[in-house]
């Protein structure tokens, strides 16, 4: 770098700092993802993976006209929507509790618990869930032991199991999206409502809940995007009986060898989650309202 005067550490001379990361991202992210998009417009030939210039919409036509595929799209969207709502119902009270916990030690403890459960390998957490929810699992074992049921309840290897798994995995993301916005709501607003005779719950539903709407929307859409793109949860908790888009992608590639068609499903999945994330970003922009 040339010995620039005074402002040497500021704007113009620093662009090179960005180069290594940008180079890695362009070569190994932008180009591969763009190529995958390109491949999805090639004719699907089993076992062949090379690009041709003949573009066709065949793969996409097939996805939207064959019941197995478009039903998988609808199933994916439906499951992700149910997970968003469930995750919100469980996540909001926890986020509220963390936001209102002023004791620094307790607050850090709660944050560590939430973050650890977010960062821990999903496969390990699913192991725990499978031991709990299986036919011979702890929950069924406990209920049988008490004599409350005579046959194991079907808690896993079905849609219910997939939803349970996804809620477990997305809950920390929901909680983290909500804490900030709940904290930003001034307590005096709630107090004012209470002093006017509202009960704690009334004050909550008429003041706090409406004001936290942007965070709720943001969290729900983040959870939606995470749920719709999950492969490991439907594979393990659904036992390959709940066929969603990521399962189709894996089957097309690993079992049938139809790269182009697998790529097309990946594109559909990607576009669906990009739409969710785009809405999420707009919601987030409104949430911060100039704070960032």
């Amino acid at each position: 770098m040339a010995p620039a005067p005074r402002k040497a550490m500021s704007e113009p001379g620093l662009w090179w700092l960005c180069l290594p990361a940008a180079a890695v991202f362009v070569v190994f992210f932008v180009i591969p993802v763009a190529s995958l998009f390109g491949l999805s417009f090639n004719k699907s030939v089993a076992g062949v993976i090379s690009y041709s210039n003949e573009l066709t919409f065949d793969n996409f036509v097939r996805i939207f006209t064959r019941a197995t595929y478009y039903e998988a799209i609808l199933r994916s969207i439906w499951i992700a929507a149910v997970v968003s709502v469930t995750s919100l119902a469980f996540g909001y009270p926890l986020a509220y509790l963390i936001a209102k916990t002023t004791h620094p030690g307790r607050n850090t403890l709660l944050m560590i618990l939430v973050l650890s459960s977010m960062q821990l390998d999903m496969v390990i957490r699913l192991f725990g869930l499978m031991v709990l929810f299986g036919d011979n699992g702890l929950i069924n074992g406990f209920l049988l032991y008490l004599g409350l049921i005579s046959r194991p309840l079907p808690l896993m290897y079905n849609t219910f199991g997939v939803i349970v798994g996804l809620v477990q995995i997305t809950l920390p993301f929901m909680v983290l999206s909500l804490i900030g916005i709940i904290k930003a709501i001034h307590p005096s607003l709630e107090e004012a409502a209470r002093s006017l005779g509202a009960s704690r719950l009334q004050a909550f539903f008429s003041i706090v809940l409406p004001l936290s709407m942007p965070g709720i929307l943001a969290g729900a859409l983040l959870v939606f995007a995470l749920s719709i793109s999950s492969y490991v949860v439907p594979a393990l908790m659904g036992g390959w009986k709940v066929i969603v888009l990521p399962i189709h992608i894996y089957q097309q590639i690993a079992e049938v060898g139809r790269w182009q068609f697998g790529a097309a499903i990946a594109v559909v999945l990607f576009v669906t989650s990009v739409i969710a994330v785009a809405i999420y970003h707009q919601a987030a922009a409104r949430t911060s309202g100039g704070r960032t």
Binding site: F90, P93, G128, L132, L138
Partner: peptide
């Protein structure tokens, strides 16, 4: 914090932590 909230919050913590304990 309303007690309904506390109850659900502890349930949520259980959802997060019980699978880890089970492992």
């Amino acid at each position: 914090v309303p007690s309904v909230f506390k109850a659900i919050a502890f349930l949520s913590l259980a959802i997060l932590l019980v699978p880890m304990a089970v492992v």
